[in-house]
Amino acid sequence: MVFFRKILILVVLLLAVDFLAGAVLKHFYFRQKSGIDYQTIYSVEKANEDILFFGSSRAAHHYVPDIFADKYAMSAYNTGRDGNYILYGYCLAKCIFERHQPKLAIIDVSRNEFQRKEGSYDYLSSLLPFYGNYESIRDIIDKRSRFEPVKLFFHTYPYNSLFPVIALNVIREKSKALNIKGYIPLYRSIDRPAKVISKEPDYELDPYLVDTFRQFIKKCKENGIAVAVVCSPYFDKYEQEDATLIKVKEICSEESVTFLDYSQDARFTGNQKKFDDYNHLNNDAAKEYSAICSDTLRILQHKIN
């Protein structure tokens, strides 16, 4: 009996401390004024722009909303986030579409994005604080691990590893990145020449990721939102077509959605002055790319409004 009493006391105390700490963290998490999490909070809870960009860091660094806004005479916001891919974008879209339907959704896809690999759903941790309030994304977040709902029983778990960031972003004012509507500019030039990659290892596609991509497009169409899929430029030259991009092209064709593949565009690929690193355009090139991309996408304009 003594043993069970001791264990019970410890469990009750732990749950109480976890509840309190979780409540404090939740309070401050949603009061952040800057930082990458603020952008997610803004995207999920406030974004009401006409054009929304979805994708990873390549989206966040490649699409300048102001340029699109000028071309279309509409408002625009970039929801792209470092290290977050199709599942993140689809979750954001589900949350946003519950309260707001943009006119155009632009989904940026990356090479290898649908590759089946261990831990490839881990990045969904960035959406754990929204698990409680948005039922529609729970089934996707649950894919992180078999015991995700068990872990989420603890109130501090969604804020794991976040407390120093939350503390800083509660104090720190809005970042420069936020002032340009989710677009995060990069300013360096890469210091190595481009590689010519003749063959990459074959990989297996993750059917869940492929299906999510298809659902994402369907969701946009169901909500009357024009959708375009784009692969932005890469620095290195790939001589072989990527399995993910082949699949994207196939699905876009089936769903009658525009797919623009700039991944090997000669105006960018291989140009050291235009890339910050091998994956990301720098600010000048991002502006140039956004202008080109927005011009091309104007063919969609008849579908908008």
Binding site: L10, V17, D18, G119, Y157, N160, S161, F163
Partner: peptide
């Protein structure tokens, strides 16, 4: 004793790498 246990458990929840 119990404060120490709780501190360690809380640190694991807040700072532990679960993935």
């Amino acid at each position: 004793r119990y404060s120490t246990y709780l501190f360690l458990l809380l640190m694991i929840l807040l700072m532990g790498v679960f993935d």
